[in-house]
């Protein structure tokens, strides 16, 4: 049985439908991503999971409990990191960790948590004096402090520098390895691709796709991208377009670089074709499309 179940969830604000029949299930121990453009309804969806909002219709269950009706039991097993939530400006890191520990019956050891999040050297610093990244890490620590079974992270790495972002990703993988289910809201494709077992793509309040990151990428047409600079200009790009699996061919007018979208067979065929014409492919790159491309593909369809 999934630990988080969302069924036909609807929520509107002032007559504007923000979440429209959203449904998904998250298995225990999974990292489940909710991906979507800004304003797609991601945050509202997880706020219903956290019990912060009451759905207009549909059901939400966390470990079989209703987050609104069983608020008290749900808050003990679900930790949340909210977007743009702050603490008292003059509260120190240590005081925040101690305070939130006191809220839970069996809290995690806040010292270890602080160490894992690199906050142990800032324990006496006040919240207002922390950098954006430190605030974010403290917020993650507070989400984990109650030893939750499920943790909901909304825009986890926004405002972090690339190194802090990678450190945070490693932390999330560790959290999952300890058996915690992670529901992750993000608009960073790289983050979803790296961390998530499965991803629900939400656009305009609806789930437009639900699959593994690899599955989403594979779905998009032309998932292999072959690009090269021919040693001499190709007279006839039509020949490339007719290759097996080829979806599109484009030539950059400035440097003559050719880009072909297709599949694995297209890549082989491009090489053979060039060899036959005695053209050398300089700076040859064969890449998988990223989740980025798949995401744009999915969310553009009805734009």
């Amino acid at each position: 049985m999934p630990i988080i179940e969302v069924n036909a969830l609807r929520k509107s604000y002032g007559g504007r439908l923000v979440v429209d029949e959203v449904g998904f299930g998250v298995e225990e121990g999974e990292i489940f991503g909710i991906l979507g453009p800004n304003g797609a309804g991601k945050t509202t969806t997880v706020e219903c999971v956290e019990g912060l909002r009451v759905p207009d219709s549909g059901t939400v269950r966390v470990a079989g409990l209703d987050p609104v009706a069983d608020r008290h039991r749900v808050t003990r097993l679900l930790g949340a990191q909210l977007q743009e939530s702050e603490l008292q400006p003059k509260l120190t890191v240590r005081e925040a960790l101690e305070l939130y520990s006191a809220f839970y019956p069996e809290p995690a050891d806040w010292r270890r948590l602080a160490e894992r999040l690199g906050l142990d050297t800032h324990l006496t610093r006040r919240f207002a004096k922390l950098s954006g990244g430190q605030k974010q890490r403290l917020s993650i620590a507070l989400a984990l402090i109650g030893n939750p079974r499920v943790v909901v992270l909304d825009e986890l790495t926004t405002g972090l520098d690339p190194r802090a972002r990678r450190d945070t990703w490693r932390l999330i993988e560790e959290v999952r390895a300890s058996g915690v289910t992670v529901l992750l809201v993000t608009h960073f494709m790289e983050e979803a691709q790296r961390l998530c077992d499965r991803v629900a793509v939400i656009d305009k309040g609806r789930v437009v796709a639900l699959d593994t990151p690899a599955g989403l990428i594979g779905r998009s047409s032309g998932s292999t991208v072959i690009s090269f600079t021919p040693s001499e200009p190709l007279q006839d790009t039509g020949a490339l377009a007719r290759l097996p699996g080829a979806v599109s061919v484009s030539v950059d007018e400035r440097d003559g670089r050719v880009t072909v979208h297709g599949d694995d067979d297209t890549a082989d065929a491009v090489i053979s074709l060039l060899a036959a014409r005695r053209v050398t492919a300089r700076h040859l790159r064969v890449l998988e499309t990223t989740l980025d491309d798949a995401f744009l593909d999915l969310t553009e369809q009805d734009a």
Binding site: G51, L52, T75, R76, G79, S85, Y100, Y104, G146
Partner: peptide, 9 residues
Amino acid sequence: ILRRMSTTP
């Protein structure tokens, strides 16, 4: 801060 607290017990 109040919202943050309402996600705790």
